[in-house]
Design a protein around this nucleic acid. Structure first.
Lengths: 347, 347
DNA sequence: ATGAAAGCGCTAACAC
DNA sequence: GTGTTAGCGCTTTCAT
């Protein structure tokens, strides 16, 4: 077996507890002993055993990350590496480790979460998504286990949950207003999976803006798609086949926008000449589309960083009152939007 | 505290050791007692404590994932979610958990690896990249700790390391030959960071194909870039400013290709009419570029899946001889390549 | 087939 | 200031 605290203790002629105190840098240990012990540690190449520590401390210093089911393509969205980078930064600063869920289906993920919690494998959990009526959220909530949601819990009854979110309603509303100001009246909405709360918020923002402008909502201008990628393409076909095709579109996610642009170019429709597009997220490659897309930067990194901050705070002070953190968003204007000429009289 | 094995034991009127045997499903326990114990477990809602198990077992059932430094944009490459999905699948099947490195710099990552290893926080490690002269590899090698590399170790002295790789040399060679067959003679190479072994392999494959075809290697046709994204764009500027700009390009990574395409379109160069492009990886969005890119599918998911398979095998049978697994690649022809008209006499 | 008890490596309460 | 010792929750000999 590896070197233990006892080996160090012997080598330094002290008791194991003294070594333990040196590790914790307890002020009750004399400088001399500290040095002696540290020397012994170095000579022996000692490293504390993580599991033993966790067991004795009842604390693992690790955060569980729960992703949506990895089976579908959503997973390949660069959104995730970027949130994780944010979480990672904070975690590293405070010496927390990261533990990843591996489930492929909702059911598998739920079981994993139970294991993490009950098996005390992690000290807290960050949900990297927020789904409507999510079993995982209710479970964590009932167990009173420290957790943070990226996005917002849908169920109003669970008001006292800590979450980090963008104002997705407002973002969608503003963006719709922007298109209206550019003269567009036929604005379509291509949303993501309706199970995700963000989709609901986007849609409501879109509807509100149209209502405020006195523009009739048209069902055939609103589509949702499961798959972030193919979905965008199908939606375009449907929309462009309409008698009155839209002149502008809100697209739920930059990745989807790539699909939309691709399909439009296949149809020989020019962006932004024929159709204007605004989307959401602003991931790394968003500026590399042709044309570069106008999109809402939701500050993914901060979403992660703040989620980690809140969670760790919750872990250290479980009594602290739940927080709702709103991360600011920002419209990044690039070249996928254009002013729309005045509408002709309907045919 | 939570429910322990003792609580279950009391409830079922047996000894703790019996409960433990039931958990392990030991054949030496009578069916009757097993049922009795299982019932008690359910009634109490018992879940084994993970840390206690790990400590007693000297095994954590978790795999450490080491990513390249998350500071730069490389991290946002959809390559990573996809390898992780592969790893994840296998890990989940065999009930292994995933532990993520959080370091931002090479030094931080190295320290983390030391902690993972010495602190027995994981049973084995998968390196998600392979760098030339990597401290981490040498360390793991010296410690004789179970690990697997995705990519190939550069140092020939460490021949007996298990790794999972593509034949990147061959892929680059074939692809160059493909461009040659299309009539291109001025073929540029836009490589990634030269610290990564894959870059070296790509370059050698490219050079070999040109040599075989009797075409002179030109230094000014070969560029490397750190950053996957901006790099592609700068490279294009340099290459297109040459007196004899290339008519075709090999690009190291699909993400980079997005940058390349973007810059070319800004310069009003048409792909594939003016320049042909082939790149590597075939991530999800690769088919969504304009035009859809021709690229080498390296089967990222399998890379991950096999890496996990090898690692777990190594963990369970440490004496097993190291393996080298080659994952097949495949050229996906889309629309970024075109036959080149015969070259005019040089001006 | 089951129980008693030692031990995995560390921490922390209690002694002195 | 430092040592002694009893756990943390589980596994695993060794008895019976």
């Amino acid at each position: 077996m590896a070197i233990t605290i006892k080996d160090v203790a012997k080598r330094a002629n002290v008791a194991p507890s003294t070594v333990s105190r040196v590790i914790a840098n307890s002020p009750r240990i004399s400088q001399r002993t500290k040095e002696k012990v540290r020397e012994a540690m170095n000579e022996l190449g000692y490293h504390p055993n993580f599991n033993a520590r966790s067991l004795a401390n009842q604390s693992t210093k690790t955060i569980g990350l729960v992703m949506p089911n990895s089976a579908n393509k959503t997973f390949q969205n660069p959104f995730f590496p970027e949130v994780i980078r944010g979480i990672s930064t904070k975690a590293h600063m405070l010496e927390y480790g990261l533990y990843l869920s591996t489930g492929q289906t909702e059911e598998e993920i739920f079981e994993e979460v139970q294991h993490m919690v009950q098996g005390r494998r992690v000290d807290g959990i960050i949900l990297l998504y927020s789904r409507v009526n999510d079993k995982v959220i209710s479970y964590l909530y009932e167990q009173n286990f420290p957790f943070t949601v990226i996005g917002r819990p849908y169920d109003a009854r669970m008001s006292n949950i800590t979450y980090v979110n963008n104002d997705n309603f407002k973002a969608a509303k503003t963006v719709t207003e922007y298109l209206l100001l550019l003269g567009h009246e036929r604005i379509a909405f291509i949303g993501g999976n309706l199970d995700f709360v963000v989709t609901v918020d986007h849609m409501e923002g879109y509807e509100r803006a149209l209502k405020n402008a006195g523009i009739r909502l048209r069902d055939d201008y609103v589509v949702f798609h499961e798959e972030i990628q193919e979905g965008g393409q199908e939606a375009v076909i449907d929309l462009m086949s309409l008698k009155e095709p839209p002149t502008a579109m809100l697209v739920a996610d930059d990745m989807m926008t790539f699909g939309v642009l691709r399909m439009l170019s296949e149809m020989d429709m020019k962006v932004p000449d024929d159709v204007s597009i605004v989307s959401f997220n602003n991931v790394m490659i968003s500026e590399l589309s042709a044309p570069p897309m106008t999109t809402v930067d939701i500050n993914i990194y901060s979403l992660g960083y703040e989620a980690a901050t809140c969670l760790i705070e919750k872990i250290m002070h479980p009594a602290v009152t739940p927080k709702k953190v709103l991360i600011p968003h920002k419209l990044i204007k690039r070249q996928s939007c254009q002013r729309q000429a005045k509408k002709l009289a309907p045919q």
